[in-house]
Amino acid sequence: MDSESQFGYVLNRRDDVWVAEYSAMAGPCEVHMATDRQSEADRLASLALSETRRIEQKFSRYRDDNIVHQINSSNGEPVAVDDETARLLEYAKQVHALSEGQFDITSGVLRRAWVFRGEVVVPDREFIDELLERVGWERVTWDGSSLTMAPGMEIDFGGIGKEYAVDKVAGMLFEQSGLSLMVNFGGDIRTIVAEGSARSWLVGIEDPSVVKGLSGSSAVGHAELTNGAIATSGDTNRFCIVDGKRLGHILNPKTGWPVAGAPRTVTVITSTCVEAGFLATMAVLSGAGAEAFLQAQGVKYHVIW
């Protein structure tokens, strides 16, 4: 009866916190809760799982029953969206402007021209040019409540969704419990410390692509967080080789090509995961100028070249 399978998550005691672990958003998810009460941890863990699944199901591009699918199959017709989707679209519009078009939620179709398995590839320039016709937020009509897109265009919340979920889940759990907590979805982390608590969350940055709680010894960097967030952009394992040059998997929506000379990964530490994720992606898109970009922002970061 008490088997873990029926809960959908595993709950363990680690030091003075309860840790719930489950799989979602294409990776491992951890929620650390500073309480000695298992029933409270159970309650919060199921809420966390519920909220994670909700966001995943609502904004996944792999489903055919959600708003993303509805927009992507709208065939040029306007699609009215709910408040939460509207906030995400508004955010996407604003960061598109702020990044001068480098951060674009319509750029997902470009991935069809690339394979990032560490192999030598010969890009199909014609195909990329064709795909570029279907990319560009400036071709989207967004009035704050409904969205109209040319047929063939697609939106993808992949660059926002996980960070959004981390912040959302952390905020929701804190609202529900008032506890100090840490939410870690495959290295995208948000920490919260309850008012009056002297706790801080020690986070080790281990492998460039994986940030974990300080349990391993291979940490290349440490961060001690109270109320903060960490997000990483880039992936050491996802790249291709063109003309002998290593190209990472983050594509520039204006050229349809990976950014040359970019760091393998950029990890940013700031106040929210959404913000950290965006700054990390912007740093990668800045290529060789990544560190200059990060220094200009005045945030803590860790770059692997």
């Binding site: 199921s46 809420l47 799982l49 519920s50 699944r53």
Partner: peptide
């Protein structure tokens, strides 16, 4: 419902 679908019931 599944344990993670207790959002409304919570």
């Amino acid at each position: 419902v599944k344990v993670w679908e207790h959002d409304i019931l919570a």
